[in-house]
């Protein structure tokens, strides 16, 4: 996968693709469990896909520890050196 530079839009693109939700249903305040397919396994898949897309690596405790769009986005931005 080619590395993408972080932006809220590119984050959203990975999110809707991996969790198979429509872009219209995406909201900034979503968190794990908000819809049926976002369970802990799908969450791990999302984390792995975010890592691959943005070329970043989460700490072990972040894999299941970051539970919302806001938290995930902030960490991806931080790790990829972008400003939010």
């Amino acid at each position: 996968m080619t590395k993408t530079s972080y932006s809220p839009e590119s984050f959203k693109a990975v999110f809707v693709r991996v969790l198979n939700v429509s872009a219209a249903d995406f909201r900034d305040d979503l968190k794990i469990g908000d819809f049926e397919q976002w369970d802990s396994i799908a969450h791990l898949e999302l984390v792995a896909e975010l890592e691959a897309a943005f070329g970043v690596q989460f700490a072990t405790e972040d894999l299941l520890g970051l539970k919302s769009v806001t938290e995930l986005r902030a960490r991806v931005a931080e790790l990829s050196g972008a400003t939010t």
Binding site: I41, L44, A48, E49, A52, T60, E61, L63, L64
Partner: peptide, 14 residues
């Protein structure tokens, strides 16, 4: 190893 530690997945998501 991170995924094995947090979810007992031997094989990574990929």
């Amino acid at each position: 190893a991170r995924f094995e530690a947090s979810a007992q997945m031997y094989f990574s998501p990929a």
